[in-house]
């Protein structure tokens, strides 16, 4: 196993190192008349593997993406999708005294609606 020599040239900042040990799904945030709508790109994640937590205005989505086709697909030719643990925390610019959260999965997108309950 050789590490290619060119990459970690001394003190050349590999800013990717900011990565956590988990991957961060992309998220779109919408303002709605009575609250917020968040779309998490979680294609291929089983609903039971997703965990949503709301704490005031902080919304944390975490879970695991398992490679479902791992066994039947044969061997990889290349791989770009991140697997295993993910986590994303979104801090919304508001405060709900009594937030109401609803979840909906559609075509691989997790939709989170937050409104004053």
């Amino acid at each position: 196993m050789d590490r290619p020599k060119q990459l970690p040239a001394f003190f050349f900042p590999s800013l990717q190192s900011e990565e956590r040990t988990y991957w961060r799904p992309s998220v779109d945030v919408y303002r709605t008349p009575n609250g917020w709508l968040l779309k998490f790109d979680l294609a291929g994640v089983r609903p039971e593997d997703v965990h949503v937590e709301v704490q005031g205005c902080l919304i944390r989505v975490s879970g695991v993406r398992r490679d479902l086709l791992a066994e039947e697909a044969g061997s990889y030719y290349s791989m770009e999708i991140s697997y295993n643990r993910f986590e994303r925390t979104i801090s919304l610019p508001c405060e709900f005294a009594n937030p109401h959260v609803s979840l909906e999965g559609r075509d691989g997108i997790l939709i989170v609606r937050v409104s004053e309950g």
């Binding site: 196993m1 590490r3 990459l7 190192s17 990565e19 040990t21 061997s75 791989m79």
Partner: peptide, 27 residues
């Protein structure tokens, strides 16, 4: 830990290990 590293895999035993890992759900 916490760092990314590019690797180049050529040894047969290492390739076998990587193949097996890729076939798992969590890699």
């Amino acid at each position: 830990p916490n760092l990314l590293m590019p690797l180049s895999v050529g040894r047969p035993s290492s390739r076998a290990a990587v193949e097996a890992v890729l076939a798992t759900e969590g890699k």
